[in-house]
Amino acid sequence: MDFTEYEIAVKKYKNSFSAKYFPLISWDIYITFFDTLKKALPDVFLLNKIAVENNWNSNWNFQKELTSDTVIVVTDSNLKIVFASKNIVEMNGYKPEEVIGNSPKMFQGKLTDSNVSKEISSAVKEQRPFSQIITNYCKDGSLYKCHINGYPVFDKSGRLINFIAFEKIAA
């Protein structure tokens, strides 16, 4: 059986529509990305607001970071958390409002490697970037390995204003 004429007719018919067909799988992928983006946008707005209000001398693509399963935590220069992205709850069970005002040490405990903690403290005191994997504690007491890329944030006059950490579950 030759279906060539039928296939040509179907193709001609489908091409006559102004709307094009897409496989359902493409919509599933897009919707997943769109939902992630929609959840991240309020955090992106707040982070940009913090950057402008504090006259940051740095630029980060917060939207890209927050749509790639990265948690963002910002502290003031005294290491009190002033911002945590909403997706922190997926990492460790804490809601942003539960961590704001606390030190990031709230995530550490008995099994946190003190040497790694000291290395992070040293980098913070010296106002230099760091990248470390540290054992942290979830709200329920369970452990997770956290890969932290931390950076001091200076204002345009060179004064230390904040610290920012981009955190992911370590593999």
Rank of each mutant, 00 (worst) to 15 (best):
D2G: 09
F3E: 05
F3G: 13
E5M: 10
Y6C: 04
Y6V: 03
Y6Q: 14
E7Y: 03
I8T: 04
V10M: 11
V10N: 12
V10K: 14
K11V: 02
Y13K: 14
S16E: 04
S18C: 00
A19D: 13
Y21F: 05
P23H: 06
P23D: 13
I25G: 11
I25L: 06
S26T: 05
S26Y: 10
D28Y: 06
T32L: 09
F34Y: 11
F34H: 12
K38F: 05
A40R: 03
A40W: 09
L41A: 02
P42H: 06
P42C: 08
V44A: 01
F45W: 06
L46Y: 01
L46Q: 11
N48Y: 01
K49M: 05
V52T: 11
E53Q: 15
N54E: 07
N55W: 05
W56D: 04
N57R: 06
N57E: 09
W60G: 01
N61K: 01
Q63E: 11
D69P: 00
D69T: 15
T70C: 06
V71S: 09
I72A: 02
V73Y: 04
D76A: 00
N78Y: 02
V82K: 11
V82I: 15
F83E: 07
F83Q: 02
F83A: 10
S85Y: 06
V89Y: 02
E90M: 05
M91F: 15
M91Q: 12
G93T: 05
G93Q: 12
G93L: 08
Y94M: 01
Y94C: 04
K95D: 03
K95T: 03
K95P: 08
P96D: 03
E98L: 02
V99F: 06
I100V: 15
N102D: 03
S103W: 14
S103Y: 12
P104G: 07
K105L: 11
F107M: 10
F107L: 15
F107I: 04
Q108I: 13
Q108T: 12
Q108F: 02
G109T: 10
K110C: 08
D113P: 09
D113M: 12
D113F: 12
S114A: 14
S114D: 07
N115A: 07
V116Q: 05
V116I: 15
K118C: 05
E119F: 10
S121C: 02
A123F: 07
K125C: 03
K125R: 14
K125G: 12
F130Q: 04
I133C: 08
I133S: 13
I134Q: 12
T135A: 11
K139V: 07
D140F: 08
G141F: 12
S142F: 00
K145Q: 13
H147Y: 09
Y151N: 14
V153A: 13
V153K: 10
D155N: 15
K156M: 14
S157W: 03
G158A: 10
R159Q: 14
I161R: 13
I161F: 03
N162E: 13
F163L: 08
I164W: 00
A165C: 15
F166W: 01
E167T: 02
K168Q: 11
K168H: 10
I169R: 15
